[in-house]
């Protein structure tokens, strides 16, 4: 199923990406090719097959409940573009 420019707008919005108007056609075309490629799977009979979510046939290991981390805030905030009063700063959010 080919993707329309509206589809591109919708999924770009979901992914917080912006596609310039002049690029939309190209994205629609290439994503349509990819979707066409993956749609071949529809032809495979998978009745009764359990989906393989993970290649490792193991179970989740559990960690003991102990505090092992120390305060590294000042070090870690060096990577942030905008901090103040020890907080990470973003544009005003209106709930």
């Amino acid at each position: 199923m080919p993707l329309s420019k509206q589809d591109i707008d919708h999924i770009a919005r979901l992914a917080r990406l912006e596609v310039a108007p002049q690029e939309k056609g190209d994205y629609a075309e290439k994503l349509s090719q990819i979707i066409e490629l993956v749609e071949q799977l529809g032809a495979i009979d998978t009745t009764g097959v359990v989906p393989m979510a993970h290649p490792l046939d193991m179970v989740q290991r559990l960690r003991p409940d102990s505090v092992t981390e120390t305060d590294q805030r000042d070090y870690l905030q060096q990577n942030a573009r905008d901090t103040e009063n020890a907080l990470y700063i973003v544009p005003k959010v209106i709930e």
Binding site: V38, L41, I44, T46, V49, P51, A53
Partner: peptide, 9 residues
């Protein structure tokens, strides 16, 4: 989901 099933195959 179909992809994960074919992955199993």
């Amino acid at each position: 989901l179909q992809a994960q099933k074919v992955r199993q195959l």
